[in-house]
Amino acid sequence: MTQKNQVKKLFDRELIAKRLGKASIFQTAEGPDNFIADLMIADLKDRLSTITRTFEKALLLAPHPDFFAKDVHTAEGPVPFDHALTLPLEKAGEATVYDPNHLTLPCNDYDLIVSLADLQMLDDVPGFFAQAQRHLKPDGLCVVATLGGDSLTELRQAWLNADVAYSGGAYARVAPFIDIRDGGALLQRGGFALPVSDLEHHVVRYSHPIALMEELRRFGASNPLLERPKSFVTRSLLAKVVENYADQFTDEDGRCRATLDLLWLMGWTPHECQQKPMRPGSASKSLKDVLGDKSEKN
């Protein structure tokens, strides 16, 4: 018998948990805040508010309590979220923790599962969707928000140019993100119907590139890869990264910009009541009958 291929471990989730556990909130120029959590939660509320459905058993998974959403409503009423962490944070107290790489939940009849800000740090994304689908009842909804698209493309370019200049090669400095074109396929691969994926594009500005790097460290997104360079970053290399970033991505007012794309993925567990595409060849009229025969030239 041949064993199933083991999923390659890409992310150091112990390191991510250690970094996230150092602070319960993130510091911005305007004061203590977790603006990424604020963006995701506000967007989640907007998206669910348009759904004409009453959810009776809902679970929200997130790597940090800042992403726990309260006072969420659909068009039919409030969503009774249970909240659980996906990383064992020391400051989280007695919070329930589930491993999203090996998702084993207490129930298999949820009608809504939401994951915020964790998919970009998972080794087995298709496996997560497949496991989430098994914990949802028919016609249940899965909603995921993750960093994706061109997020942090400026930082990636600054590091790449600095590494090439200093060592002649490139190193894994910024984790890869899911492309929107792959979103629907991931949902379908996990067994979901009616998949929807879209991107919320944001440009965040900082007083200095180091301020961006510090915020990423507190967010747990500062190079969480297992195969990251093990040697310490020298002052000269870091100075070159900052120089590259400032030269290429600084606005006229002296603040540097960073791309932040929030990828949203939504899919429903299959149910007979859902709309289905027509079977090929089953149409009663052809397109020619509707539009007329355009084959003859005037």
Rank of each mutant, 00 (worst) to 15 (best):
T2I: 09
T2N: 10
K4C: 04
Q6F: 03
Q6W: 00
K9Y: 00
L10S: 09
L15T: 07
A17G: 11
L20V: 03
K22W: 01
F26P: 01
T28V: 05
I41V: 15
K45L: 00
T52M: 04
T54L: 08
T54P: 00
A58P: 07
H64Q: 12
P65Q: 07
T74W: 04
G77F: 02
P78N: 09
V79G: 02
K91N: 15
K91G: 01
G93A: 08
A95D: 12
V97H: 07
N101H: 05
L105N: 04
D109Y: 01
D109S: 12
D109A: 08
D109P: 03
I113Y: 09
S115Y: 01
L116M: 12
L119Q: 02
Q120L: 02
P126C: 06
Q131K: 15
K137L: 11
K137P: 01
G140I: 04
V143E: 04
V143G: 02
S151Q: 01
R156L: 10
W159G: 02
D163C: 14
A175L: 14
P176M: 06
D179T: 09
D179V: 07
G184N: 15
L186G: 09
L187N: 05
G191A: 05
D198I: 00
H201G: 01
S207N: 08
M213N: 07
L216D: 09
F219G: 10
G220K: 07
N223P: 12
E227P: 00
L237T: 01
L238I: 06
A239E: 14
A239I: 03
N244L: 03
Y245W: 09
T250L: 01
D253L: 03
A258E: 09
A258F: 00
A258C: 15
L263F: 03
R279E: 15
P280H: 07
S284A: 14
S286T: 15
L287D: 11
K288L: 15
L291D: 01
E296M: 11
K297D: 14
